[in-house]
């Protein structure tokens, strides 16, 4: 019970993620089957739908944009600040910061991660591991979106009695960029809202907010 409580945030998001993905699979199957009937095709099972390019492209296009959002947030907040935002460092603290502050190399503590105590490539990799993994998942998801999107796009084109296009042709198509940009704009707006609204608004008890009584000018203070 203690273990569940200690990991309640991760577990809650994991359960919500699985429920939402399952709901997407079921709702997507119904929508796909409606379209199949209209176009003279046959309905498919949920299993057939979740292994189709239609489902894959819808999942991948959302994943890539979410991971891009966090990648940008993680990396840009190293170098850029927003005065008054709890999501930002104090003005003047821009950059990778000193070894002493980052607790690496000779300043590592006894319980620091092993790769924080060494030098060279391993230290660089570990120092950037969060951004690297987010970036890798973003690129992997975007690649998956491009391939699954190509499969769906070409199936639609053939159904409309048009020639299919190549992967390169799809990467330059309005369809690919519309799918990508419509997700990116919403993620970027959400980050902008979080950074700016948290200057002036509070959520009591949330570490994503400043303490309720904290002044608007206080930066990097989390409640």
């Amino acid at each position: 019970m203690r273990r569940i409580k200690d990991n309640a945030l991760s577990l809650t998001f994991l359960v919500l993620f699985v429920l939402a993905l399952g709901g997407q699979a079921v709702a997507g199957t119904f929508q796909f089957n409606d379209e199949q009937l209209v176009s003279g095709g046959e309905p498919v099972s949920v299993l057939e739908y979740v292994t189709s390019s239609n489902f894959a492209v819808d999942v991948a296009e959302n994943w890539q944009s979410e991971y891009l959002q966090f990648l940008l947030f993680i990396v840009l907040t190293v170098w850029l600040v927003q005065r008054g935002s709890p999501e930002s460092k104090e003005p003047g603290e821009e950059g990778a910061e000193s070894d002493r502050r980052q607790l690496i190399g000779p300043y590592a503590q006894a319980d620091s991660p092993a790769w924080a105590k060494v030098k060279g490539v391993r230290l660089w990799l570990y120092s950037n591991s969060l951004g690297l993994v987010m970036g890798a998942v973003f690129l992997g998801s975007w690649l998956a979106q491009s391939v699954a999107g190509l499969a769906q796009f070409n199936a639609d084109r053939l159904a409309d009695l048009q020639d299919p296009v190549s992967w390169g042709g799809y990467l330059g198509s309005p369809e690919f960029w519309n799918r990508s940009l419509q997700n990116w704009q919403s993620e970027l707006l959400a980050v902008l809202s979080m950074v700016v609204l948290s200057i002036y608004l509070r959520q009591r008890g949330s570490p994503e907010s400043k303490p309720v009584g904290s002044p608007h000018s206080a930066t990097g203070v989390e409640g």
Partner: peptide, 28 residues
Amino acid sequence: QVWGDEAQVRLAGDTVFLHRFSDGWRVK
């Protein structure tokens, strides 16, 4: 060319589009 349940078959004298049904490919 086969993409999903759709296909295009080019012949020397024709181009044919097909859809895959549970009992096989049919000419659309």
